[in-house]
Design a protein around this nucleic acid. Structure first.
Length: 467
DNA sequence: ATGTTC
């Protein structure tokens, strides 16, 4: 009797090992191979009937496995109806995003949620979705670009002191864009985040360290940008006088590193939740007190720090080239999960395309390549789980935008607003986004607007179609 | 979002 005979029974490794043990014992006692295999099949079919037999050990294990499977299945069952949640700017929110949020609020681990006015359909949790879960972290509740974030630097110079040609040249020389793109070896800058001990604590992170070192200080494709613009304060704020300033605004994330972390743990979560309702497959979670959940949390946290370091380098390069230190620097992550005290316990608050907006917290909400971005201060509005939108939100999908908009229309829009664009596809056209003014009006309980940034010279990835 | 998805 050997493993080959046993493997035909279709047992998992632990049960198969027990089956092999008992089979060998029976063989030694003179039972025929055929009788042993018949007995094993019957034990598998009805373990309860064999709890007092020679096959008891295997029967107990099979029974335990069945129970934990049933338990897992029960633990994965969706609630019959979604928990209630608030949405802001209902007229701006497409039904698909609401349906996705409804599914998220049916998860057994869900405790609270909210939908921001820039909401649109994404994988799993909608973009603009906020979800508080108990002892569970959902990789697709954070999203693919873990730690995607904004940073603003306000300089003491007046905007007209930087001519457009010079701004373009600075962006060309000191920023890099696109999938797979890193800095040339001799141009790379070091950063303490690359020495974080976490890199050596998981094989996946060890493997991704070199890529992260190559790509730090760069921006990706899609909606990532670095832009010079005019920052206006109507009243003194954060140590700055009323007035108009030259400023730099960036939108970037954790690049290939974060994307690979997201992919790895999303797959793992889906495998752990084979019994999950297909409607919620992309919302598969990892228990925070499991090894996998803890590993995701560590990797996610590192990707969040890395993304902020990324912005820091973008701004440091430009700041150095301008020979000017910023008067004010503000940044925030908008794709991440946080541990926050809520409903008398600590919950895992996922913000996927949502700006943290605790009372007093500063944040940045961009409109589009040719619309204003806003410096905001959170109001800690509880029904919104102390969050706000992370931008205007798409009103046209990428394909719809490419089909509906012409290069001329986009060029006209930019010309009217005096915006110069380097790179940027039709799918990122201002007309593909909701009106940021409408989105801001829908979240006046969530944030106060402190200042307005108007883009002037914008760099994005070229994508397939340059305007 | 990412360099091409076991």
């Amino acid at each position: 009797m050997n493993g080959k005979h046993i493997s035909k029974l279709g047992l998992n490794p632990k049960a198969a090992a027990l089956a092999l043990n008992v089979a060998r014992r029976q063989e030694d006692l003179g039972t025929s191979r055929r009788d042993i295999l018949d007995a094993l099949s019957q034990v598998k079919a009805d373990p309860e009937a064999y709890l007092e037999s020679d096959y008891a050990e295997l029967a107990r294990e099979l029974l335990a496995q069945t129970c934990s499977q049933v338990q897992r299945q029960a633990g994965s069952a969706l609630r019959p109806a979604p928990l209630p949640y608030a949405e802001f700017g209902s007229a701006l929110i497409e039904p698909g995003a609401r349906s996705q949020m409804d599914v998220a609020m049916r998860l057994p681990v869900a405790r609270a949620g909210a939908l921001m006015p820039d909401a649109h359909v994404g994988y799993g949790l909608p973009i603009g979705g906020v979800l508080a879960a108990e002892n569970a972290v959902i990789p697709y509740g954070v999203g693919v670009d873990i730690g995607c974030s904004m940073q603003l630097s306000v300089f003491g110079t007046r905007p007209e002191q930087l001519p457009t040609a010079e701004a373009l040249s600075l962006l060309r020389r000191h920023t890099r864009f696109g999938a797979g793109v890193g800095f040339e070896r001799r141009e790379r800058l070091d950063h303490p985040v690359l020495d974080d001990p976490a890199w050596s604590e998981q094989p996946l992170l060890r493997h991704l360290h070199d890529k992260a070192a190559e790509q730090i200080g760069t921006s990706g494709s899609g909606n990532h940008f670095v832009e010079f613009g005019t920052f206006t304060l109507q009243a003194p704020e954060e140590g700055l006088e009323t007035g108009t300033y030259l400023a730099l605004l960036s939108h970037s994330g954790s690049r290939g590193f974060g994307a690979q972390v997201a992919g790895h743990f999303t797959k793992l979560a889906e495998q752990r939740h084979a019994a999950l309702d297909p409607a919620a497959r992309k919302l598969a979670w990892l228990p925070l007190d499991s090894d996998e959940g803890a590993a995701y949390w560590q990797a996610m946290t590192l990707a969040g720090h890395y993304a902020l370091a990324n912005h820091q380098q973008i701004h440091a390069r430009i700041s150095r080239a301008l020979n000017e230190a910023p008067l004010l620097s503000v940044r925030n992550s908008h794709n991440l999960a946080w541990k926050e005290p809520l409903e008398d316990s600590e919950l895992i608050v996922h913000r996927k395309g949502a700006t943290p907006a605790a009372a007093g917290q500063l944040g940045l909400i961009p409109g589009s390549m040719a619309d204003p971005a806003y410096l905001v201060r959170g109001r800690g509005y509880a029904p919104a789980l102390a969050s706000a939108s992370h931008g205007a939100g798409r009103q046209l999908g990428r394909n719809a935008a490419r089909a509906a908009l012409s290069k001329t229309e986009v060029a006209d829009y930019l010309a009217q607003r005096g915006v110069t664009l380097l790179g940027g596809g039709i799918d990122e056209a201002p007309q593909a986004y909701k009106r940021i003014e409408d989105v801001m009006a829908a979240q006046s309980d969530l944030v106060d607007v402190l200042g307005e940034f108007m883009p002037k010279v914008v760099r994005m990835d070229s994508g397939g179609q340059d305007i």
